[in-house]
């Protein structure tokens, strides 16, 4: 695994997927999980929506439209990333080139996985989401340090992110390294337990 690159800002046009409850089986179908690496999954991102049964790109799917080229911010309707815990979902999104997903709700495990892979899970209020859904392709700037999303209509929207995750994103910190620094505390915890699992 490569160390996560520091992520300070994302400036990009948006791709809009106006679908609610996008589950991880849509992001990356289970039959592509028989891999032992995390590279190359971008080609399978949204596979069954993106490709027709004969394997040709589905011209109706948003990622196949020319405007989607180079976009790094995905906007989706509420409850993005529900379903399984497969980290292949954020791997597929980042491998494709996305650096942020914006929705009014993002499922817990997907959110946690995204934060460990340099993919910003950005939760905005329903009005902001509605505006973004209605204005596909707008240029948006995400300032990670300020935890804000700047829209071309002039509004600057704050999004929630815990301080630790933000710090790790900004500095490209490997969370395992942080955990391992607590080795003494972990050892003491194990020695002091009243029962052993």
């Amino acid at each position: 695994m490569n160390p996560v690159e520091p992520l300070k800002t994302v400036q990009s046009r948006t791709v809009v997927l106006a679908v609610a409850d996008v589950d991880t089986d849509q992001i990356i179908p289970a039959r592509f999980l028989t891999t032992t690496s995390r590279e190359g999954l971008g080609a399978k991102l949204f596979h069954d929506w993106r490709y027709l049964p004969d394997g040709a790109p589905n011209p109706d799917f948003v990622l196949n439209q020319p405007a989607a080229n180079g976009c790094r911010i995905l906007v989706a309707d509420r409850n993005f990333g529900c379903g399984s815990s497969r980290e292949h979902a954020p791997w597929a999104l980042t491998d494709y080139g996305f650096r942020a997903v914006v929705s009014s709700e993002i499922a817990d495990i997907f959110r946690s996985n995204a934060l460990k892979n340099g993919l910003l899970p950005i939760i905005v209020d329903a009005d902001t989401l509605a505006w973004l859904l209605e204005h596909p392709g707008v240029e948006v700037t995400i300032d990670v340090a300020a935890s804000t999303l700047s829209l071309p209509n002039g509004s600057v929207v704050s999004y929630p992110i815990d301080a630790f995750s933000r710090y790790c994103l900004l500095e490209g910190i490997d969370q395992l390294g942080y955990l391992r620094k607590h080795d003494n505390e972990i050892r003491r915890f194990e020695e002091s337990r009243s029962w052993t699992p």
């Binding site: 995390r38 980290e87 954020p90 395992l176 972990i186």
Partner: peptide
């Protein structure tokens, strides 16, 4: 997720 699987295996 798998990153966390690594965390638990290691720590």
């Amino acid at each position: 997720g798998t990153t966390e699987v690594g965390h638990v295996l290691a720590t």
